[in-house]
C-alpha cells in the first residue's frame, strides 16, 4: 500500500507501484486538472509540485512519491487566487488553455525558488513547458507580473 498526500489529503494505492503519478491523479483520484501532453517529460503539461519542486507527473511513478506531499493545480490556492493564477488572468494568458495548469505549476515552483526572476531566468525556467498555441509572450509577462506584485 502506497500512501501519498495530495493537496493536503491522504490517498492510498495498492495497484501497480510503477503507475505514473499522472494517471493516478487523473484516472484514480479524479484530479483532471493535471494534463497529459507527451508522456515523456518533454512538454510539461503534467507538472505538479512535489514538496517544493516542480515534477513531471508523467514519468514519476506513484512509488517515487510515496510519503511525499503533492500539490496539483486544484490545490495551489483554495480560491484559485495564487499570485501566479491572478497574474495569468490579468494578462489574459491562455488560448486553448490545455497546457496552462502545467505552466502555472512550473511558474509557482520557480517563484518559490526565485521570487524575483529576471526575464532571462523566466524564459529559461519555463522552457520545459510547451504551449502549441504560442502564449509564451504572455506567460513571460504574467510570471514577471506575479513576481512583482499582482
Amino acid at each position: 500500500m502506497i500512501k501519498v498526500k495530495i493537496n493536503g489529503q491522504e490517498q492510498s494505492w495498492d495497484g501497480d507501484p510503477d503507475l505514473p503519478l499522472l494517471w493516478f491523479l487523473r484516472d484514480e483520484a479524479g484530479l483532471t486538472g493535471t494534463k497529459f501532453g507527451c508522456g515523456q517529460a518533454l512538454c510539461g503539461a503534467c507538472t505538479v509540485i512535489v514538496d517544493k519542486e516542480a515534477v513531471r507527473a508523467c514519468i514519476t511513478s506513484i512509488n517515487d512519491v510515496a510519503g511525499r506531499e503533492i500539490t496539483t493545480i486544484e490545490g495551489l490556492h483554495p480560491n484559485g487566487d495564487h499570485p501566479v493564477q491572478k497574474a495569468w488572468r490579468q494578462v489574459n494568458v491562455p488560448q486553448c488553455g490545455f497546457c496552462q495548469a502545467g505552466q502555472i505549476m512550473q511558474a509557482a515552483a520557480l517563484l518559490m525558488d526565485n521570487p524575483k526572476p529576471s526575464h532571462d531566468q523566466i524564459r529559461e525556467a519555463m522552457s520545459g513547458n510547451i504551449c502549441r498555441c504560442g502564449c509564451y509572450q504572455r506567460i513571460e509577462n504574467a510570471v514577471h507580473l506575479a513576481s512583482t506584485g499582482v
Binding site: 487523473r26 483532471t32 494534463k35 497529459f36 484559485g80 489574459n92 488553455g97 496552462q100 495548469a101
Partner: peptide
C-alpha cells in the same frame, strides 16, 4: 472582456475531452 473559461483554465476546472469521467 476576457474569455469565459479564464478562471476555470487557471484553476484546473476547465473540462477538455480527456477530463470526462
Amino acid at each position: 472582456i476576457s474569455i469565459v473559461d479564464l478562471h476555470d483554465i487557471t484553476t484546473g476546472k476547465a473540462r477538455y475531452g480527456a477530463d470526462v469521467r
